[in-house]
Design a protein around this nucleic acid. Structure first.
Lengths: 233, 233
DNA sequence: CAGTGGTCTAGACCACGAT
DNA sequence: TCGTGGTCTAGACCACTGA
């Protein structure tokens, strides 16, 4: 009963996908277990396992011990966005990256930040504001609160020369993080930094990171108008 | 020289991560080959392979035949956004989903749409506009162009009763797609549909899908003000 | 050419969880 | 309880690619 004869677990994956799309295995239905499929395809069970695990990771299949493998009723599409270092993102477009530290001072973080970092209200953190430029034009405005106590070595770094994020990814790994995208209207500060009218729609990225329960940083990035984050599905 | 004794490829992954974070294996450096690591850890090579493949998928490691495995210089963070069916997203928040088809008509698609779908300029497509409601309040405005010729069966569907996307995911699988997020200012139509002032910042999602080279649909979703797309890292 | 990761096999044991 | 997927093993061959 084998379908394709091509080698490789990718062929198995493709054949399973074909049977799903062709309605041999409609959404919600159970498919044969790994051992049976391995016999059908004439391969080892481990090979089938790899194919099915890949499809499960994509959300196409639901797998549970004892219950078996089923075609997902509502395949939840997953879009994987690459979040590169801004300098690389800009240079990849053939532009020159520029970086300007607008302000740096220790002060009490606002409730929005402390709650995101799960720190007590009023905790004092290092507040950084910076502007990223692409070919000398504003690219993104960065508002960051940094828990210097949790990042040894950051105190000696001149953050007007190196972008905080770039230093952090190279020197302070994180183990967990939150990430959110939204659209916001430019306030006076952001508008001035990005050279746009107040109220312009800005794509805004917020990220909070921890290292083993220790809060590292909260950062908000407002991209210049028209910015798009793309990916393939 | 084994580090941890805990079983499982996850333990291997954790130990490798530990060595990277602890600077035993600094960014850019090569790490031992799979066979050596397997001997060090006292496991089979396949187990090491699984751990290293997982880290490579995360962007932590760069692997190439013959060249070996290296710690990535610039770990590109990947944020995986779940793009569920809107009805599920709304119901998951304990709200009631509503759906209203605003308009449906066949007409020539604008250049923006035809070029995204890689169709000839002026191709006639089915144009759908709809509104998604959560507890009777506007949740997202949908503007869709549908290539009915590529989706057999869609002609008989009453799209005022079932959301086009929901029908498509269940009946018309796609093999490739483009996906983009941006921030836009609400135009008159969007503002009226969402009940917000013109110019409000809206998080906007665009998606184009194909099935084996055959264009299926182009859709733009404008979420109500304040909408956030979140994920963990 | 030769070293490395990519994959496959046949078999085994185990953990989970539906019944 | 016991079927199912999850994982591991020891060994093997192959594909790619740096030297």
């Amino acid at each position: 009963m084998s379908g394709t004869k091509a080698p490789g677990w990718l062929a198995i994956e493709a054949e399973v996908l074909r049977r799903i799309h062709s309605r041999d295995w409609p959404p919600g239905s159970a498919i044969p277990n790994e051992a049976d499929l391995a016999a059908d395809f004439g391969v080892a069970r481990a090979t089938v396992n790899r194919a099915l695990q890949s499809l499960a990771e994509s959300g196409i299949l639901d797998r549970r011990r004892k219950a078996g493998t089923r075609v997902a009723l509502h395949p939840v599409r997953k879009a994987t966005l690459n979040i590169p270092i801004l300098r690389h993102e800009i240079e990849a477009q053939g532009m020159v990256h520029g970086y300007t530290l607008v302000s740096q001072q220790e002060s009490a973080a606002p409730p929005q930040v402390t709650s995101a970092l799960r720190l007590p209200d009023g905790t004092s953190l290092m507040h950084l504001r910076a502007l990223h430029l692409a070919d000398n034009r504003p690219y993104a405005y960065e508002d960051r609160w940094l828990n210097t106590a949790a990042v040894p070595g950051i105190a000696e770094v001149d953050l007007s020369l190196i972008n905080a994020n770039e230093w952090l990814v190279a020197n302070a790994p994180f183990t967990a993080g939150d990430f959110a995208l939204s659209a916001t209207s430019a306030d006076a500060t952001e508008a001035a930094a990005l050279g746009t009218p107040v109220g312009t729609a800005l794509l805004t990225l917020e990220r909070t990171t921890w290292n083993g329960g220790e809060p590292i940083t909260w950062v908000m990035l407002c991209f210049a108008p028209g910015h798009r984050m793309r990916t393939e599905l």
